[in-house]
Design a protein around this nucleic acid. Structure first.
Lengths: 192, 192
DNA sequence: TGACAAAAACTAATTGTATTAGTTATAATG
DNA sequence: CATTATAACTAATACAATTAGTTTTTGTCA
């Protein structure tokens, strides 16, 4: 009866915490409503339903990660910036496993809004790679390479899917080295 | 009443087709039961429930992919074999989007059986990389690199998550070039 | 062959969640 | 102070997963 004073941002924000605690597949509107001190139908005043909530979590997560990555590359350029951005991605993804699942599963082509969820983030990476002597088209390819690797590797870590006992941190570092050395071979020679 | 003559393999096999048609998140036991000409509780004679079914789909998918990859590297060695194996992975993943989702989401560390789902597949890759002049430990790291990239890139393709209009096939080829050139820098010099 | 046991189907019932419809109370606005 | 929009509520619906208990078939063994 007493008005709780919820708004959409509060719901999303609380759901983002909760999804990291219980996992994307286990979150329910009832659970979220209980936590917010409200009955579950009341949530429909702020979100469109469970699917909509997960979609919004996806967008929320990518925006947050974008901020982290922008912070991480301030004052750095070239391969060091790539390295720093990749580390920021990996850290955010593994610190927020539930949210990261939403980011992966719901990042589908559906409409302009969902499509733009990641565009800001990867335009940051584009700016970074553009400072290298690599053609624009190849920069776009490289971003896809990095994106694929970062998303897949982070998912595997979150799922504890690496059976081997060898260090995951070292695997990540070596992977970045491999990728960066590979990218260097795409640099165009400059006439002297 | 009349016995349909189902067994676990038939259920899994049919579910594998269905999951590619309707998507992992939309498959229901009722739908599967209807399709198999049976009531949904009857499925419990063959599977442990919906979660168990998805787990079994995960294992089924990895085994099938393993076979495809083994076929693809027959008679090839070195970097050509890596290339061929990666192509086989990518093709299987994109030809079976629903099943591949199960392979990603349910490939978590839970018990020995789920852990071993992918061990055969990656021991094939290990044999391939072992023929290079690279330390065993680095081979293990490289496999993780490839695994991360392949899983992430395939997922992005299946989700149509690449906004850019540039060719995805070219992105994949360039990515493999980047990875292989990067891996080459790990080769240990041989005394002459 | 014929009784018996195991397996595989069934029906009925339970539970839990999302979602919708319709109602009431609060807050904001003129 | 009256009115209106909003945000909560209760009640009801629909659907799927799952469990319990029953029936029927199939295969086996004396």
């Amino acid at each position: 009866m007493a008005r709780t004073g919820l708004d959409t941002d509060m719901v999303i924000h609380r759901a983002a915490q909760m999804v990291n605690e219980v996992g994307l597949e286990n979150i329910t509107l009832k659970m979220l409503a209980d936590d917010l001190g409200v009955k579950s139908p009341s949530l429909y005043n702020h979100i469109g339903g469970l699917e909509d909530l997960k979609m919004q979590l996806m967008i929320y997560g990518w925006k947050k990660m974008e901020q982290r990555i922008i912070q991480s590359v301030i004052g750095i350029s070239g391969y060091d910036a790539i390295r720093a951005g990749c580390h920021a991605f990996y850290e955010y993804a593994t610190e927020n496993p539930g949210l990261f699942n939403a980011m992966l599963w719901y990042n589908k082509f559906l409409n302009t809004e969902t499509m733009e969820a990641t565009s800001g983030l990867f335009s940051v990476l584009f700016k970074v790679t553009s400072s290298l002597n690599i053609s624009e088209e190849n920069c776009n390819h490289i971003i896809r390479t990095l994106r694929g690797f970062l998303e897949g590797f982070s998912l595997l870590v979150n799922n504890e899917a690496f059976g081997n006992p060898i260090s995951i941190a070292e695997s990540f570092e070596l992977s970045l080295n491999v990728l960066i050395e590979g990218i260097k071979t795409l640099e165009e020679k400059i006439e002297e």
